[in-house]
C-alpha cells in the first residue's frame, strides 16, 4: 500500500477558508490543489469530487471549531450571559472568518444539494439538543425547554447572518435584545395552557 504523505484532516482544514472566502461554486479544484499542496489525482481518489471535499470539511469544522463553542453552553453562569458568550464566540472568533461555516455553506447550497441540507439540519438539531439540555436545568425555562431552544436556534441563524455586517456594538445589542425578548416570554404560550 502506498504511504499517504499527507494528513487528510489537515488538508480539509486548509479547504475551510477557501470555501468560506470564495463560496463553493467560486472555488476551483486548481485552487484547492494550490492551497493544500495535494495533487488533483489524490484529492479525487480520497474525496471523489469537490462536493466530497466540502462534506468532509464541514465535519472537520464541527470537530475542530464547532464543538468547542457548543461546550460554552454547559458552562456555569447566568443563562443570558452564557448565551451571549456562545453566539459571540462565533462572531469574535480568532479565525479569519467570522460567523458559522455551516450557515455560510447552507445559505449557498442547501436548496440544491440534499446532502448539504441534511448536514445543516443535523447541525442545527445538535445545537437544539445542547440548548435543551441547558434549558432543562434553568428555573426560567425548565418547563418547556424545547420551546425556548427552538427560538434560540433561530436567533443563532439570525446572528450568523445578519450580525456579519454589524459593528461590535450593534451585534452585541442585537443578540442581547434577541435573548431578552425570547427569555422574557412567559410560559403560557409555550405550554399551551
Amino acid at each position: 500500500m502506498r504511504y499517504k504523505e499527507y494528513n487528510t484532516n489537515n488538508v480539509l482544514e486548509k479547504c475551510i477558508p477557501i470555501f468560506w472566502e470564495k463560496g463553493f461554486r467560486g472555488t476551483s479544484i486548481q485552487e484547492i490543489v494550490k492551497v493544500t499542496g495535494v495533487n488533483r489525482f489524490s484529492l479525487y481518489h480520497e474525496f471523489q469530487n469537490k462536493e466530497g471535499i466540502l462534506y468532509n470539511a464541514l465535519k472537520i469544522y464541527q470537530e475542530r471549531y464547532g464543538d468547542v463553542k457548543f461546550e460554552i453552553l454547559s458552562k456555569e453562569g447566568e443563562l443570558p450571559a452564557i448565551l451571549q458568550e456562545f453566539y459571540l464566540s462565533f462572531l469574535q472568533s480568532k479565525e479569519k472568518h467570522k460567523g458559522c461555516f455551516y450557515i455560510h455553506i447552507g445559505t449557498e447550497l442547501a436548496d440544491d444539494d440534499p446532502k448539504i441540507k441534511s448536514l445543516i439540519k443535523d447541525y442545527l438539531s445538535r445545537l437544539e439538543s445542547v440548548l435543551i439540555k441547558r434549558l432543562s436545568i434553568e428555573e426560567k425555562t425548565k418547563n418547556n425547554p424545547a420551546f425556548y431552544a427552538r427560538h434560540l436556534v433561530a436567533l443563532f441563524c439570525t446572528s450568523m447572518s445578519f450580525c456579519l455586517i454589524h459593528s461590535e456594538k450593534q451585534k452585541q445589542h442585537h443578540i442581547a435584545n434577541g435573548i431578552e425578548v425570547i427569555l422574557t416570554k412567559k410560559i403560557n404560550y409555550a405550554t399551551g395552557t
Partner: peptide
C-alpha cells in the same frame, strides 16, 4: 422591531430544512 428584523434571516435558513 429589532427582534422582527431577525425573522427574515432565520426564515432564510429554516425554510430550507
Amino acid at each position: 422591531a429589532e427582534f422582527l428584523l431577525g425573522v427574515i434571516f432565520s426564515m432564510s435558513i429554516l425554510y430550507k430544512i
